[in-house]
């Protein structure tokens, strides 16, 4: 009983870890679907990044794939490329293997890197809990500062019903040298699959 309570409270502490807006984000080096290794440091000219934790199987991720492509097309040339990361354990979620990621990216025509968080070390650092989960990073004196955490927009299920584009508004503000007005938004998503948490 005590052990269980201890492990549950340990989990609660764990889940509240991760970045908050204003924190400095760390870089990573992960394998992309084209078999190259990708780090944020590779993007010398980037002003920042739209980092999104996503996956192959989750219906909320699928419902947002087109929106991610649109975001990348619009903001890559302005200096804020989309970097997608799949942190699911493919032993738990079979459809999220590296090979399956390649297939999905090709099917959808991803214009952005789709990285495999093989050791599942990146998502706990960021504090990502679900897919999709967006972290907007802004480069400042060579540091990556977290400026926004949350949803892509206000209609996660249905892109035809979007009224407020949170990520676009946040990046637009950063491009103007301003702080985003909304920095913490919520949407339902699929929990990131990690057998170590059970």
């Amino acid at each position: 009983m005590l052990l269980v309570v201890a492990s549950i409270s340990a989990f609660t502490v764990n889940s509240s870890k991760g970045y908050k807006v204003g924190d400095e984000a760390s870089d990573f080096k992960l394998k992309n679907i084209d078999d190259t290794m990708v780090s944020l440091a590779d993007y010398k000219d980037a002003k920042g990044f739209i980092v999104v934790f996503t996956c192959n199987m989750c219906p909320y991720s699928k419902a947002n794939e087109n929106r991610l492509i649109a975001l990348d097309k619009k903001y890559k040339k302005k200096g804020f490329p989309v970097i997608a990361i799949n942190s699911n354990d493919s032993e738990v979620s079979k459809g999220d293997s590296f090979e399956a990621m390649k297939v999905r990216a090709k099917e959808k025509g991803f214009t952005f890197p789709y990285l495999f968080d093989e050791g599942q070390e990146v998502y706990p650092k960021y504090g990502a809990t679900k897919t999709p989960h967006v972290f907007i990073l802004n480069k400042k004196n060579d540091k990556l500062i977290v400026e926004y955490i949350g949803a892509i927009d206000d209609s996660s299920r249905d892109e035809n019903n979007v009224k407020e584009r949170f990520v676009e508004n946040a990046v637009d503000a950063l491009l103007k040298g301003e702080k985003p007005t909304k920095t913490d938004t919520r949407a339902i998503g699929c929990s990131i699959k990690d057998k170590r948490r059970r």
């Binding site: 679900k130 949803a151 919520r186 339902i188 929990s191 990131i192």
Partner: peptide, 8 residues
């Protein structure tokens, strides 16, 4: 207040 939105 602390629910990020993941299920379960």
């Amino acid at each position: 207040e602390n629910w990020s939105g993941s299920i379960p």
